[in-house]
Structures are given as structure tokens and as C-alpha cells.
């Protein structure tokens, strides 16, 4: 059978891309220049003068300004997640880029790319948000019991029994637990976070508990952010610390980070 010759499909493409988020009002003298901008209807300069960064951050993704409780919850989560710490692979990637004199404008993209992983990274946040949405109406104790009955642990390394919850270096991540417990004590309605605290407590006997991705996922869910936004939000919130670690090393010589000696570098072909 002879192949058909190539023809273009008649897909109906829109003439203009649409956005609900941002409106740029053109200058009367130049249609390419923005005279004023509005975010979900609010004039940018008015937001600049009257609202906090957290308020406008929330507005950008949710379409409405947050109430006082939502703003406090988001701001305190942002502080809690501001730095995954210098031992997180993403921070180490930033440091490698810094000490290796990678172009400074690449430091953050490099770190955020590594912060996108399924292990303690943005991809795990998305999975955790889906898990929380699906299971937050179940009894956490019964769910933990069922999960451990049905699941097989990995032969070595950490075990995340479900996305965002698990062990860290064989134990419970105390920082994630403290932040989650604190946020859960804030005023407001955050049922996913409350459920997550009960689920994490039930995991503690198995040396598992909250990890940063689920803690973020629970708050994002309660604040009404979509899982599609969750990954990038997690990356944005960790960006300050990642960048700071990379920049700190960028002014130092290449000897400012360890370079393993040959006797500590073993080549094994399996």
C-alpha cells in the first residue's frame, strides 16, 4: 500500500491566546507599550501601594485576594520552605554551579531543575496533592494500617509509603513535622493539613512522617491551589535559599567545595 502524501490538518487554532490573569492596557500613542496593568482586575499600582507580596502572590494563582487567615498561612509556609537546606541535592547543585563559575544567571534554573525531582522535590508535591485529595476523607489510622499491609518496602534507602510522607535518612523529618504542626495550629479552615497531621502521627511508629513536599501539598490544597500549580509553587518557595547557597559559593575558588581524592573514588563495573 502506498503511503499517503503529507497534508496539513485542518485543526482550528485560536487567533489570539487568552488569559484570565493579566490585562495590559495599551498606551494611546503606542499599541505595543503598556500604559497600565491589571492582575485579575486589580490595578497593579494600587496593589503595589496597598497590599503585601503574599497577597498578590495568592491573587495571581487564585484569582481573588486572600483573607487574613489565608495570607498568614501562606506567608508562614513560605518562610518554612524558604530553604531546603545545604544538603538537599538541589542546593548542592546550586553550590556546584556557583563554585564551578557557571554563569550566575544559570544558578537558579539549575537548582530549580534538580528541585523538580520526585524525591523531596516539586514532582513529589504534585503526587502528594493528588494523594491528599483522594484520601483525605478516609480514617488516617486505618489507611496507614492498610498501606503497610499492602506495600513492600524498598530493599535499601528511604521509604516514602505515599508521596510526600515517609522516612528521611531512616527517621522522621523533625523540621517538616514542626512546621506542619505549627501551621495546623493557625486560625482558619485547613482540613487537609489537619488530616495530614493525623496521618503523619499514625506513620510515626513506622519511623515515617511528614516530608516537606506533603506539608507544602496540604497547605496548597487547603488554599485552593491546583496540583498543576503545586510543583512550580514549591520551586518558587524554595528558590531564595537555593539561590543564596549558589551565590555564596560563586565568589569562592573552586577549592571551596570538596573534590574527592582518587582513593575515595572507586570504580566498580557490575
Amino acid at each position: 500500500m502506498e503511503r499517503k502524501s503529507e497534508v496539513r490538518r485542518n485543526d482550528l487554532f485560536v487567533e489570539r491566546t487568552a488569559t484570565n490573569i493579566w490585562q495590559e492596557v495599551a498606551s494611546p500613542d503606542n499599541p505595543y507599550l503598556t500604559e497600565s496593568a491589571r492582575c485579575h482586575g486589580y490595578e497593579l499600582m494600587e496593589l503595589v501601594k496597598k497590599r503585601s507580596f503574599v497577597d498578590v502572590f495568592y491573587l495571581m494563582f487564585r484569582g481573588e485576594l486572600p483573607d487574613a487567615n489565608e495570607a498568614v498561612l501562606l506567608e508562614q509556609l513560605m518562610i518554612g520552605l524558604i530553604n531546603p537546606g545545604p544538603r538537599h541535592p538541589a542546593a548542592r547543585a546550586a553550590m556546584n554551579a556557583g563554585v564551578g563559575s557557571s554563569s550566575v544567571e544559570h544558578i537558579l534554573p539549575i537548582a530549580l531543575t534538580i528541585y523538580g525531582g520526585e524525591h523531596l522535590g516539586a514532582a513529589e508535591v504534585v503526587s502528594a496533592m493528588k494523594f491528599l485529595r483522594k484520601h483525605r476523607n478516609q480514617d488516617p489510622l486505618l489507611l496507614v494500617h492498610k498501606l503497610f499491609e499492602e506495600s513492600v518496602p524498598p530493599s535499601e534507602g528511604d521509604w516514602h509509603i505515599v508521596p510526600g510522607f515517609g522516612s528521611r535518612f531512616g527517621g522522621v523529618d523533625g523540621v517538616a513535622r514542626k512546621i506542619a504542626d505549627h501551621l495546623n495550629g493557625l486560625p482558619g479552615n485547613h482540613e487537609t493539613l489537619t488530616w495530614g497531621c493525623r496521618f503523619a502521627a499514625a506513620l510515626n511508629g513506622h519511623s515515617q512522617g511528614w516530608l516537606a513536599p506533603a506539608m507544602a501539598a496540604a497547605v496548597f490544597t487547603d488554599l485552593g491551589f491546583s496540583p498543576r500549580a503545586g510543583a512550580g509553587l514549591f520551586q518558587l518557595l524554595g528558590a531564595p535559599g537555593l539561590l543564596a547557597h549558589g551565590v555564596e559559593l560563586a565568589s569562592k575558588p573552586i577549592t571551596a567545595m570538596p573534590f574527592l581524592k582518587d582513593e575515595n573514588y572507586v570504580i566498580t563495573y557490575e
Binding site: G117, E118, G121
Partner: peptide
């Protein structure tokens, strides 16, 4: 350095 970033990506499951 660049290779280590690849290794860190593997260990972080990117």
C-alpha cells in the same frame, strides 16, 4: 561539577 549535577538529579529523581 556538571556531572555531579546530573548525579544529584538522579538521586533527587528528576
Amino acid at each position: 561539577w556538571c556531572n555531579q549535577i546530573g548525579a544529584l538529579g538522579g538521586t533527587a529523581r528528576t
